[in-house]
Design a binder for these strands. Structure first.
Length: 434
RNA sequence: GUGAGCGUAGCUCAGCUGGUGGUAGCACCGGGUUGUGGCCUCGGCGGUCGUGGGUUCAAGUCCCAUCGCUCACCCCA
């Protein structure tokens, strides 16, 4: 039984080097945008106590009920989302004392035991942003504007939908009204939604079933049931979005899957990801911090951005750009003696900060040139018997095909420094690579 | 947890109503260029047809089981 083939387990994926280029671009762009908005990075463990997630996300949610990777005997769980862990860290370290408003982001893997499909893995990655300690509606608008800026700069076309789901003061009233409405129209609802009336009636509002969609069209709107504080808040959010030039659509049917959300909720959506539509989503969670044992009445708002989904969109939508993985100089060594020259040389070039490559196999020059081409080398330095005899290597510019002699007198360090100067100098004149 | 579809070379795929696994494309290696890349050209490497059973003179093809993957439902980023 020896030729056991191992493979990634279901729902987990390798990100191979070619694809990792896109991931890196996403992360770098995110960091660049976040810096402009004064966000600071925080890194927290991917394992927390099961109890933390149960409290934050809600005991009755699908995520907690059936999707968590839990080590039952240890009371620990792989995080299914990032907010809970960040807030735990915020509270544990008393960050609010240092700075009343904390603007934080983190990037990393999350885990949910769901059946995988397009744009959904069991290990998936999120860019997560939280602004804690500020309740002003301007914050809500700024956060959405920032997410949109990032998506725009990645070259993606997605749309923004917003809603307000009220607060513990006004939502129960709406819930009652909605249940009343739904109960009168059971015929128009799918089986799931009839069940939802008892478990989570708001979910019926965003059911994909056609009949439910029609039935729900005339349902009472949450926006008409907001208390005056929530209503004022949401009006300001919309006004601010307009002022910032952020395009959005109001979606009174939008609901959240996690219990902690209050007031403003939003989703950046696309119809180019199969059954998945949200690429980033979030909202306010004004009661959550207190609920987790933090300071009373501490507000917060945040969003998660699904990196797999963004990367899929980047593949489909964004301009293909040339990979930056490019060698400055490839040193072709022909024969063992040449290697003793070439290797220290390449090492010195690398010390000087250049991307240098070498092939130790001593294959034919043709083969090595092909290899140089594959690593997109801008220059190739050729060292063979003749060159060693003459003490002059050949330096070839791969873009222009120009070739010149390069004296081999001096120590490896001196030679590398001179070569570095040469390839920098020549590289300035021809950016184009054909 | 539920449903549907698909497993042939490293990758993308042909393979008809069962009748010898494809000069297939890409990639890789080598020759054409006694030491010069991309384009071209010629050649080479590469497969227990996911696995196990069954039907048949004969199975990549039909049937059953099993494993894996994909998509969708639920739910969610």
């Amino acid at each position: 039984m020896f030729p056991v083939k191992f493979q990634t387990v279901n729902g987990f994926k390798d990100i191979l080097p070619d694809e990792a280029v896109r991931w890196r671009r996403l992360e770098e762009q995110a960091r660049a945008v976040f810096r402009r908005f004064g966000l600071r990075e925080i890194r927290v463990p991917i394992i927390e106590s099961t109890e933390l997630f149960a409290r934050a996300i809600g005991e009755a949610t699908d995520v907690v009920e059936k999707e968590m990777y839990t080590f039952a005997d240890k009371g620990l769980t792989l995080r299914p989302e990032a907010t809970a862990g960040l807030l735990r860290a915020y509270i544990e370290h008393g960050l609010h004392v240092q700075q009343p408003v904390q603007r934080l982001f983190t990037i990393g893997p999350m885990f949910r035991h769901e059946r995988p499909q397009k744009g959904r893995q069991r290990q998936f990655h999120q860019i997560d942003v939280e602004i804690i300690g500020a309740s002003e509606p301007g914050i809500d608008a700024e956060l959405m504007a920032m997410a949109q800026m990032l998506l725009n700069e990645l070259g993606l076309k997605v749309s923004l939908e917003i809603n307000s789901i009220g607060c513990p003061q006004c939502r129960p009233g709406f819930r009652t009204k909605l249940v009343e409405y739904l109960n009168k129209r059971l015929d128009g609802l799918c089986e799931d939604c009839r069940r939802r009336i008892h478990t989570n009636p708001l979910r019926a509002l965003d059911c994909k079933n056609k009949g439910c969609k029609e039935t729900v069209q005339a349902a009472p709107s949450i926006l008409d049931s907001l208390c005056s504080d929530c209503d004022t808040h949401f009006a300001f959010v919309r006004q601010q979005l307009d002022a910032l030039g952020v395009q959005y659509a109001l979606n009174r049917f939008m609901v959240r899957g996690l219990d902690y959300y209050t007031r403003t909720t939003f989703e950046f959506i696309t119809n180019e990801l199969g059954a998945q539509s949200a690429v980033a989503a979030g909202g306010r969670y004004d009661g959550l911090i207190e609920q987790l044992g933090g300071p009373a009445k501490m507000p917060g708002i945040g969003f998660g951005m699904g990196m797999e989904r963004i990367v899929l969109l980047m593949e489909q939508q964004a301009d293909k750009e040339e990979s930056a993985d490019r060698a400055d100089c490839f040193v072709a060594a022909l024969g063992g003696q040449a290697l003793t020259f070439a290797a220290p040389f390449v090492h010195q070039l690398r010390c000087l900060g250049f991307v240098a490559a070498i092939d130790y196999s001593c294959r034919s020059l043709k083969a090595q040139m092909k290899q140089a081409d594959r690593v997109k080398a801008r220059f190739v330095l050729m060292i063979g018997e003749e060159e060693i005899a003459r003490q002059e290597a050949a330096l070839r510019n791969m873009g222009t095909q120009e070739q010149s002699a390069f004296s081999l007198h001096g120590t490896a360090g001196e030679l590398a420094a001179r070569l570095a100067e040469l390839i920098t100098e020549k590289g300035k004149h021809e950016q184009a690579y054909c």
